[in-house]
Write a protein that binds this DNA or RNA. Structure first.
Lengths: 236, 236
DNA sequence: GAAATTAATATGTCTGCACATAATAATCCT
DNA sequence: AGGATTATTATGTGCAGACATATTAATTTC
């Protein structure tokens, strides 16, 4: 319709997203109810349907809208808000906090994994595994202790890497992009790791276990325990 | 590998994304280096530039590419992989695990916040605060203990809500969409909460503190402590 | 030679149009 | 009525062209 809207008057998808977000927040559109379809909204905003589509698609991925072909777009009653946790290179994490980063390789050897690790990695039994234990420090203070199992059949190149300089973490992030994986974290007592983290064995620490895969092949299982004082922070 | 595939008349942006992803993983494009520009890629794939743009934009938000106008698109040396943690409705979380969900309101009263809470919420001093403590159970077993402070000036409506039936969590998720917030979690000892979580005071528990805002106005600060056996799981 | 100006370029986005796809609604057929 | 078929509809995506914007590179000016 209005094609004089060329020079600068075109509407941005961000502005539409913001407007729609405001309406959702103000409950101009009732939770659970349908909102106008793209054609109508495009008419209202005086823009192309593609622009409205982009805006609504964004709100859908942010978890505020639910969209289905033919069924239309409706406001989620309980928005699916999500926090994104960047899988960090510990080095960057530490440096970003303004501290000096240091990495120490504690142990590196071919080893036989315990049943729990075998199970997590779905090992058949014939695989060769590299076990790497290391400590990451911030300003000379222990920050995180890492105990890692690497499946050499999946990433054979790492066997020749000097892990006293580069941490396995960094090498893998750069060289072995996983296709998927799982992560879990929980609180536990430091136990023997207290030695490395400089805390009592019964001090509570946060531990994260991550398993990553290259398609069907397991890459690595890593268990990282943070120093008791550590807090993981996220923005919402 | 070149797709002169005109037969099906059009190439999908997903297929381009997948092809490019495979090339990145195979290091056909060297880490840190520029990849061909959109026009060239569109020519190669035999599609419109917009389609390539969509594919590359997706890979950029997934953290594999770095894009800048004029500077071009380059492969990230250390991909910024991210895990998304959905802020859960505890109810859904518990039910999804196959357990029966139960919620118990332990305490609800107007109260004066301690300095730490005041600081987190950036309170001036005149605000009225509602304090709500509750317990969430899975199959009759304590799952999470919640201690919450709600700023009534920001969400006055909640003062009239019957919180014995609906948890503050659920009401707020539905009625008070925050604009931003912060979250942090860490391990600590259960302390007095052991009473509710049915564990020893020195058992390690994972605690999460979340503060949410409606623009400049604080909505709520909540501290949630999970039962010692709880593990937070995420897919990568 | 250094600083300021101008050109060049890759990505970012909008428009209009077309067709694809999934899901629902309507209709037909026994 | 009930099941199968067909139409309808809202979103999903593709295309070509155009202009916007952010940088970087080249050029001019002092």
């Amino acid at each position: 319709m209005s094609k004089e809207g060329k020079a600068d008057s075109s509407v941005s998808w961000q502005s539409i997203r913001d407007t729609m977000m405001a309406r959702i927040r103000a409950q101009d559109y009732a939770p659970g109810e349908l909102i106008p379809n793209e054609v109508d909204l495009a008419a209202e905003f005086g823009c192309a349907r593609a622009t409205v589509n982009r805006a609504l698609r964004d709100l859908a991925t942010s978890g505020f809208l639910d969209r289905r072909r033919k069924a239309g777009t409706r406001v989620r009653e309980a928005p699916r808000r999500k926090a994104t946790l960047a899988i960090p290179l510990i080095r960057d994490d530490v440096i970003a906090s303004g501290a000096r980063y240091e990495y120490r390789l504690l142990e590196r050897k071919l080893d036989t994994p315990p049943p729990l690790v075998r199970e997590h990695l779905k090992l058949s039994g014939s695989e060769r595994l590299l076990r790497v234990q290391s400590l990451h420090l911030a300003d000379d203070v222990p920050h995180m202790f890492e105990d890692r199992w690497i499946v050499l059949d999946t990433v054979p190149d790492i066997e020749d890497v000097d892990l006293t300089e580069t941490s396995a973490n960094e090498w893998l992030v750069r060289q072995a992009h996983y296709t998927h994986g799982t992560m879990e974290f929980f609180a536990e007592t430091a136990g023997a790791r207290g030695q490395h983290l400089v805390c009592a064995p019964d001090d509570p620490v946060m531990t994260m276990i991550r398993v990553t895969w290259l398609e069907a092949a397991p890459i690595t299982l890593v268990q990282q325990s943070y120093s008791p004082s550590h807090r993981m922070r996220l923005d919402l």
